[in-house]
Design a protein around this nucleic acid. Structure first.
Length: 898
RNA sequence: GGGUGAUUAGCUCAGUUGGUUAGAGCGCUACCUUGACAUGGUAGAGGUCGGAGGUUCGACUCCUCUAUCACCCACCA
């Protein structure tokens, strides 16, 4: 490897050289429990939210996994034994749907194949395509311990699921019951409440007349949006307080079309103000009606089947529920039962996956009793044993926990963990690890296993345990002892209920300890107009393409830079220019530093020797160097603090600002001048060492965000083996006290340079022309500062500098005042007096306005009496400085006006 | 109906316990291809911080009300 970098930064080469495959073979990212137990290293663990096996990489993954990688790399470099647990989720409905769709293209349904053969197809599909997302994640450069990759259907995880189910069942927290659940007519399975999305929808509110049995000619009118369920009506309900209907309570009414005689009942549930104040009761097709029916001992009739088609005996059977609705409205009208139809917009539940209206469906399902689990899970968050970032998610979490309902965990699918329950011929339920065990318990071998599988999240909620090898019966091992509880969970806020809350419950229940300490909720990524990214909108850029065009580091840096804690992110791939430009800048700056190194030292060996002995404390520093070291340590301090506060976009901002604004724009520019000057060789050697030292520090700080480019450059800092990694190097720590060492005196030089450059630009002094700069500095220390930095000022302003305590003001000069020091740039032939007068007048106005405000402030007794002394003192000092500057500005203006 | 968050320059956003004349990137204007970098440099124009009130010596920052937008939760047919 040559000592310096290639002239042009090529991210493809760099990413190829330091690929995930390279590090996997070196075992660089592997974490071991013995290093915790015997090596005394502190553990740090991140749980990867397992992506769906059906998935491919989205920008959401990019943000999410980059953040996790940043945490992991940072902690690894901070000396912890950092473990990142990867894996994939079997994603029940999603995967089954994908495979069924593929089969359907060949004209085969899963029922044609049968359960066993269908599952073979799913496994085959998973083996073939299931690794795609992990491959893509590797491209992102994330540093997991890939040896521990877990799939939620692996044997260990499956064992854990069975154990969890059995334990909860024995503890009375899982039960089987007949309830109204959310039914997806497309996937033909039950869903949990969380899998139902409420969406506004326009429907018809239909007013229907029900004749009263014993009062010929009289009737009661109800309003419904689901007229097709009239066929299953078992009562009419009114509010007991409603005077309009009080005399009708106890009467019988006739259900149109069905001809059924049903009672008029009174129930508080009915809202007097809605519709007609009378409500039809259809227990099988509405959860509220089901409850009302329970209170009044009413029968339950069902007219909609599992496929969303009618099953009634009134001539609608086989019709889709929405077709039946239209037909019934027409039929009601034909019979004269229809009063009127109103347009009505209301919220309707849709199936998350299939995006169809969910059918409330009465069926036998398995449920988890959530209230007892929620109590502890809420407690640990209230007690700060688990911290949310940003913290405001606690109120959302709390609200859900306090209003929690039982969790429907059975799914009428084939792909998933089969429910470990068997039924005997009398209908008795036997929950056991295996058929054999169930037979043993039941005392018979005539048992049939429950056909259903478990909700995917029933395995996900055990993820913190199963990834560490917990199977329930095998509840203890070295990994769990070393790494549980895990530390940081990074996840999108939309699965706070699905996953985060339930993991907390499971951790507390099965391990008696929280599953993690900190939860970082990532931003939701939107397009530039604020819309959510989605495949159907076509507004979702392909991250792999973005990585290819701009570079993986550029994408990682950009997305973290623009993603503040707790805020949505508007992303357009052109934003990655920002990260790409920064990467290029780093490359070029490093190349420059290495060039200077080569000039000063010749060979890498000579440099290596000097660099390894280098100590900035033992070096005689220039003002610029003292300043940059002060800035460096201040930045380091801010950087580590930002990590502590989970302010991830701050860390990119902090390093970016330092590197661009301070290191490149000022410090490297002064370094050029220093090295071109007359200093001794030793001094030049030290200057180069310092430049490399600071560069290496910045590389380490950037490494968690930009792993590839920092790795490449780091390998050029010294001779290093390919097996070595910056990822295993030590993160620099801040030293305080640089402020006291006068690190800010260089700022006066900077201000002087900027003012002088401004004058040159405003008056159009040609670039190749050397001008003069006269500095009138009343204080000796300041004159000393300028004379020490004379070459720097001359180099950066392209002016010959002269310094004096009280020099004559040249006649044709532009002027400026910096901290009480006057700058004169003689511009014979170039100066426009009008321009200069206008410029000075603007400045005088601005400063005198400031002075007036400050005088008013300090004349205010309330301020002087109430504000802290140091604040008042500071304001006095500022006023004095401004007044002194103002006086000098006015004097210079006066000279011009005469 | 309840809850949460946002509102600062043309655009996208910083502004961490209230105390410098409110900052950056992109875009824009002018100048510059100088031996790290035009994916760059230097200089410049451009906001009074959604609106109204209040607390305070002092408010972009705290409180109240209000407007707009976004998201989450909620069984009124």
């Amino acid at each position: 490897m040559s000592a310096n970098l290639e002239k042009t930064y090529n991210h493809h080469d760099v990413e190829r050289r330091w690929s995930s495959a390279h590090w996997e073979s070196e075992g660089i990212f592997d974490a071991e429990h013995f290093r915790v137990f015997e090596g005394g290293k502190e553990p740090y663990t991140v749980l990867m939210p397992p992506p769906n096996v059906t998935g491919s990489l989205t920008l959401g993954h990019v943000l999410n996994h980059t953040l996790q990688d940043i945490f992991i790399r940072y902690q690894r470099m901070s000396g912890k034994e950092a473990l990142w647990l990867p894996g994939t989720d079997h994603a029940g409905i999603a995967t089954q749907t994908v495979v069924e769709k593929k089969l359907r293209e060949k004209g085969v349904s899963r029922h044609d194949l049968g359960r066993k053969e269908f599952l073979e197809h799913v496994w085959k599909w998973r083996d073939e395509y299931g690794g795609l997302i992990l491959k893509q994640l590797r491209k992102l450069g994330i540093s997991c311990d890939w040896r521990r990759n877990l799939f939620t259907m692996d044997e260990g995880a499956s064992k854990a699921v069975r154990h969890a189910f059995i334990t909860l069942y024995r503890d009375g927290l899982i039960y089987r019951g007949k309830r109204i659940i959310n039914w997806c007519p497309v996937s033909q399975t039950a869903l949990s409440d969380e899998e139902v999305i409420m969406k506004p929808r326009k429907d018809k509110l239909v007013y229907v007349r029900y004749p009263l049995t014993k009062r010929p000619g009289e009737h009661i009118t109800i309003a419904t949006v689901r007229p097709e369920t009239i066929l299953a009506d078992v009562a009419i309900a009114v509010n007991p307080e409603d005077p309009r209907y009080s005399d009708l309570i106890g009467e019988m009414a006739v259900v149109p079309i069905a001809g059924r005689h049903v009672p008029v009942i009174a129930d508080d549930y009915v809202d007097v103000g809605f519709g007609t104040g009378a409500l039809k009761i259809t227990p099988a097709h509405d959860p509220n009606d089901f409850e009302v029916a329970g209170r009044h001992n009413l029968p339950v009739l069902c007219v909609v089947g599992r496929d969303g088609r009618m099953t009634d005996e009134f001539g609608y059977a086989g019709l889709d529920r929405f077709e039946a609705r239209e037909k019934i409205i027409a039929d009601l009208e034909g019979r004269g039962s229809l009063v009127k139809v109103e347009e009505y917009e209301h919220n309707v539940g849709y199936s998350e996956r299939a995006d169809v209206v969910v059918e409330p469906y009465l069926s036998e399902q398995w449920f988890v009793r959530m209230k007892p689990l929620a109590a502890n899970a809420l407690q640990v968050v209230n007690d700060n044993q688990i911290r949310f970032h940003p913290a405001h998610w606690i109120s959302t979490y709390r609200h859900w926990m306090e209003n929690i309902k039982d969790w429907c965990i059975s799914r009428q699918l084939w792909w998933g963990h089969r429910i470990p329950a068997w039924y005997d011929q009398e209908g008795g339920i036997w929950v056991a690890e295996s058929y054999e065990e169930a037979c043993h318990l039941a005392g018979t071998d005539k048992l049939v296993q429950d056909e259903d599988v478990l909700d995917t999240w029933f395995s996900s909620w055990l993820w913190p345990l199963t990834t560490l090898g917990w199977t329930g019966e095998q509840a203890e091992n070295d990994d769990i002892r070393a790494f549980y509880p895990t530390d940081t969970l990074v996840t999108a806020p939309d699965i706070i209920f699905f996953w985060v809350a339930r993991m907390i419950m499971a951790g507390l229940y099965f391990r008696k300890d929280v599953p993690f300490r900190d939860v970082y909720f990532t931003s939701i990524i939107r397009d530039m107009t604020g819309r959510k990214l989605s495949k159907s909108l076509g507004n979702s850029p392909d991250p792999l393409k973005v990585m290819d065009v701009y570079g993986t580091d550029a994408l990682r840096f950009t997305i973290v830079y623009i993603a503040p804690l707790g805020q949505d992110v508007l992303f357009g791939e052109e934003k990655c220019e920002f990260g790409r430009n920064f990467a290029t800048k780093i490359w070029n700056a490093a190349r420059f530093v290495f060039m200077q190194r080569e000039k000063a030292f010749g060979g890498m060996d000579e440099f290596g020797c000097a660099y390894q002995c280098f100590n900035s404390e033992a070096m005689v520093l220039s003002d610029a160097e003292r300043w940059i070291l002060g800035r460096y340590h201040r930045m380091l301090d801010a950087y580590h603090k930002a990590f502590g506060q989970f302010r991830m976009n701050d860390i990119t901002r902090i390093v970016y600002d330092f590197f661009r604004g301070d290191y490149c724009d000022w410090y490297l520019e002064t370094l050029k001048i220093e090295l071109a000057g007359e200093s001794s060789e030793t001094r030049k050697h030290q200057a180069v060492c310092l430049a490399v030292y600071l560069l290496e520090g910045v590389l380490k700080m950037l490494h968690p965000v930009m792993p590839f480019i920092t790795e490449e450059i780091w390998h050029h800092v010294l001779r290093r083996e390919d097996s070595e990694s910056i990822a295993r190097s030590a993160m620099p720590m801040p030293e305080t006290g640089w402020h006291d060492r006068g690190s800010d005196s260089f700022e006066l030089v900077q201000k002087t340079v900027s003012e002088t450059r401004s004058i040159r630009a405003v008056f159009g002094v040609p670039h190749d022309m050397t001008a003069s700069l006269i500095i009138r500095a009343p204080e000796k220390t300041v004159r000393r500062l300028f004379s020490d930095n004379g070459a720097v000022v001359e180099g950066l302003t392209k002016c010959n500098v002269s310094i004096a305590e009280d020099s004559q003001r040249p006649p044709h000069a532009a002027s400026a005042v910096v901290d009480g020091n006057e700058l004169f740039v003689p511009l014979e032939g170039l100066i426009s007096f009008e321009k200069e007068i206008a410029r000075l007048e603007r400045e005088v106005n601005s400063v005198s306005g400031y002075v007036r405000r400050m005088e008013r402030k300090l004349a205010n007794k309330g301020f002087v009496d109430n504000a802290p002394d140091d604040v008042v003192e500071n304001e006095r000092r500022k006023l004095a400085e401004a007044k002194s500057n103002l006086g000098k500005l006015q004097a210079n203006l006066k000279v011009l006006c005469n």
